[in-house]
Write a protein that binds this DNA or RNA. Sequence first.
DNA 1: ACGCCGATGTCCT
DNA 2: GGACATCGGCGTT
Length: 203
Amino acid sequence: MGGDRGRLTGPAEQVAPGLLGALLVAGPVSVRLTEVEAYAGEADPGSHAFRGRTPRNAVMFGPPGHAYVYFSYGMHWCLNVVTGPEGAASAVLLRGAEVVEGIEVARERRPGAPDRDLCRGPARLTRALGVSGEHGGLDLLDGRSPLRLVLPGAPAGAVRTGPRVGVAGEGAATPWRFWLDGEPTVSAYRPAVRRARAGGSPP
DNA sequence: ACGCCGATGTCCT
DNA sequence: GGACATCGGCGTT
């Protein structure tokens, strides 16, 4: 059978809500996912795969269940789970979670943060878990992996949807952000900033 | 609630 | 060469 890898094979926006409630394990710290976003391949203007394959996004074009980790704004790491069949270049960004084990370690990594903020936001999540570029490409479904994903045995609860954070333009129309209703660890919605384009802005 | 920036890799021109 | 990034922390209202 396909098992958990089969559950990650399919359109990213259909796979994504199934990740809510999943356990993500990184050494001493375990978290339960409460918020995710789907990025659906080369046709999705919000996706890193939109302009085709590059060295950075190559993992997205591989088999499902692997970690796509990228560096942003000169200081943050963000973690995605590759989904869909191999070649689909789809992924789900992990945006929010609740720490269920190893909270002492997570607190040390996020000094001063209230517990509900430890993993509230994609870059906060990677910091609390100690995830960085070296985790890129890991098979999250391999029991020996230092970064592991355990899918939920049953639907996690009421799922809400809305537009993705930080995605502007056409990609902003698709409500491919998913979160668990009522969870305090879901990040605040922040509309994407439309920057002025070089070469002429309207008066 | 909102505004301002940081500090650097990636990719387009 | 240069825009800009799947963002976050800190400051001010």
